[in-house]
Amino acid sequence: GPAPCGHGDLVVALVEPDEARGTAYRTVTLRLTRGTEPCTVRGYPETIVLAKGRPAGVATVPDQTLGRPEQLTVLPDRSAKVTLAWS
């Protein structure tokens, strides 16, 4: 099957903001870099909040209420999405 995604395989294609009941959301669409073979991602990404380019010391936690991460194969016509929320 496809190999795990690595350096340069994925790019941010779209960031969609949303807000509900005091919580802000950003849904990030990740697509294959043009010409890249399909590859897989698994689980939650590591997430760090930066302030002026440096870690801001903000704790981040996975939230299973937004869906459980499965292994996904990213294809040229099939992107992967990550939703970030903060309140």
Binding site: G8, L30, L84
Partner: peptide, 20 residues
């Protein structure tokens, strides 16, 4: 000028500017 950095894989960091 806050941002969020996601590691989708150990060698695949993606930076999202314009947070906060």
């Amino acid at each position: 000028n806050d941002a969020v950095r996601l590691w989708v894989a150990p060698d695949l960091p993606l930076e999202l500017p314009g947070f906060g």
